[in-house]
Design a protein around this nucleic acid. Structure first.
Lengths: 207, 207
DNA sequence: AATAGATTAGGTATAAATACCTGATTTTGT
DNA sequence: ACAAAATCAGGTATTTATACCTAATCTATT
C-alpha cells in the first residue's frame, strides 16, 4: 500500500482523485492540502506519505515553490507533478524544482497508477513529456519576486493603467514603471502581456 | 439512481469524479465526453442521462455553446455547470445559456451531491454563486467573433506587437488595429490585457 | 440591381508602455 | 555601526496602444 498526499486547490479534483485511487486499489491518501503551505505545516508533526501528488498553480504557495522547499528540507520525499498544461516552461520549472515525474490532468488513470508505482519503486518515472527537453540548461534558481512585485502582478492582469495602479498602491507611477521594468527583466518577457501570461501560467495570479 | 453524463476535457477529473460519485452512491455515470461535440454525437442514438455535468472551457465545443445547443434541441435535458472560475461573466454566460445550476470545482463533494439531487428533483438548484447577480440585464446572446478575430486573439495573448501580428497574419497593421477596436467594444473591456483575460477565461485561448 | 453587412485599411491625435538613465531613503545582514 | 541590498522615484526618448474618423471592396440576400 503506497501512501499519498494530494496537493491541489480544487477540492473537487482532490477528493475525486482520492476516491479514484481508493477504487483502483494499492494507494491510500493520508492527507489533502489546497496549497503548498498547508502541506508543509502538516509535515511538521505528522508521518510522511510515500509520495506527494502536487498541482502546479495554486494560491498562497505554488507547486514549484513547494517542491523546492521540500527538496531543501525533506529531500527523500518524492514529488509527482500534476498539471493542466503541456507548456515546456512549466515542465522545466517543476522538474528542475525537484519533481520526480510530470503528469498531465489529461492522462488516463492507468497512466497515473503506473507513474506513481514507478516513482515509488525507482525514485523517478519515465514519461513522454519530460525528455522532450533537450540540452537546454535549466535556470535552476527560482525567480525571486518581492511582495510589492507580486501585488503589482495582481493589478497588471487587470485593465488598469500604471497611473491607476499607482493610486491603488499609494505609490508614484514611476515606481510602478520600475516594477514593470524589473519584472520584464526577471521574467525574461518583452511586454505587459508577457507578464500577464507569466503570472497566470505560474499561478501567481488566478484566472 | 440518477444517471449522469460528465463533460470535461480533463480525463483525470472526469474519471475521478465518476469514481467519487460511485463511492458516494445514488449516481451512475453512463457517459463521459471530453467536449460538447462528443456529447452531442452521443445523444443522437443513446439513452439520455438525467443530468449533464458540464465544464465551461473546453476545446472544440465549449460549455456555453453546448448548453445552448442542448436547450435548442433537447430542452428537457438538465445541465449543471462545473467551473473553475467565480467570474461573474462566466456565471452569466452559463446560466443564460440554460444551465440549471453553477458549481465550482472548489466545492465539497457534499455540495455537488446536494445540487445534483436538487436539480434532478426540481429542475433547478439554489446556490450562492448565482443570485449574486443583481438586476443587471443579461446580454443573453453570446458574443459572436469572426474567424479572423479568433486568430488575432491567439496572437494578442503573446508578446507580439500589432506590427508583428500584422506580418504573421499577412495583413496591414491597421487591420489588426481594427480587430482590437472591434474586440474592445464587443467584449466590453478597456485594454489589450482585458482582451487577454477574456480570451483565457473563456477558453478561446489556452493557458 | 440594390441594400446591408462584413472585411480590410488609411488618417490623425492622444494616452500608455517600454528602455535606460540617475539618485535618495530604508532595510537587512554582520 | 557599517556595508550591501532593496525600495522608491525622478528624467527623457522612443515605441505601442487606444479612440474615432472615413472609405473601398467583397458577399449574401432580397
Amino acid at each position: 500500500m503506497i501512501t499519498l498526499a494530494l496537493v491541489d486547490d480544487h477540492t473537487m479534483l482532490r477528493k475525486s482523485m482520492a476516491a479514484l485511487l481508493r477504487l483502483m486499489g494499492g494507494f491510500e491518501v493520508i492527507f489533502q492540502a489546497s496549497n503548498g503551505k498547508e502541506l508543509i505545516e502538516y509535515l511538521e508533526d505528522q508521518t510522511w506519505p510515500d509520495l506527494v501528488l502536487m498541482d502546479v498553480s495554486m494560491p498562497v504557495m505554488s507547486g514549484p515553490e513547494t517542491t523546492r522547499w521540500l527538496r531543501e528540507h525533506y529531500p527523500e520525499l518524492k514529488v509527482v507533478a500534476l498539471s493542466m498544461v503541456r507548456s515546456e516552461n512549466t515542465i522545466i520549472r517543476m522538474m528542475s524544482s525537484g519533481a520526480r515525474a510530470y503528469l498531465l490532468k489529461d492522462a488516463e488513470p492507468e497512466e497515473l497508477v503506473r507513474m506513481l508505482e514507478e516513482v515509488h519503486q525507482h525514485g523517478f518515472a519515465h514519461n513522454e513529456m519530460v525528455p522532450s527537453l533537450p540540452g537546454r540548461t535549466v535556470s535552476s534558481q527560482p525567480i525571486q519576486l518581492s511582495d510589492q512585485e507580486k501585488v503589482y502582478m495582481q493589478w497588471v492582469c487587470s485593465e488598469k493603467s500604471h497611473k491607476e495602479i499607482a493610486e491603488l498602491m499609494q505609490l508614484s507611477p514611476r515606481t510602478i514603471d520600475g516594477y514593470r521594468d524589473s519584472l520584464l527583466k526577471k521574467l525574461g518577457v518583452g511586454s505587459r502581456v508577457g507578464i500577464v501570461m507569466y503570472a497566470l501560467q505560474h499561478g501567481i495570479v488566478a484566472l
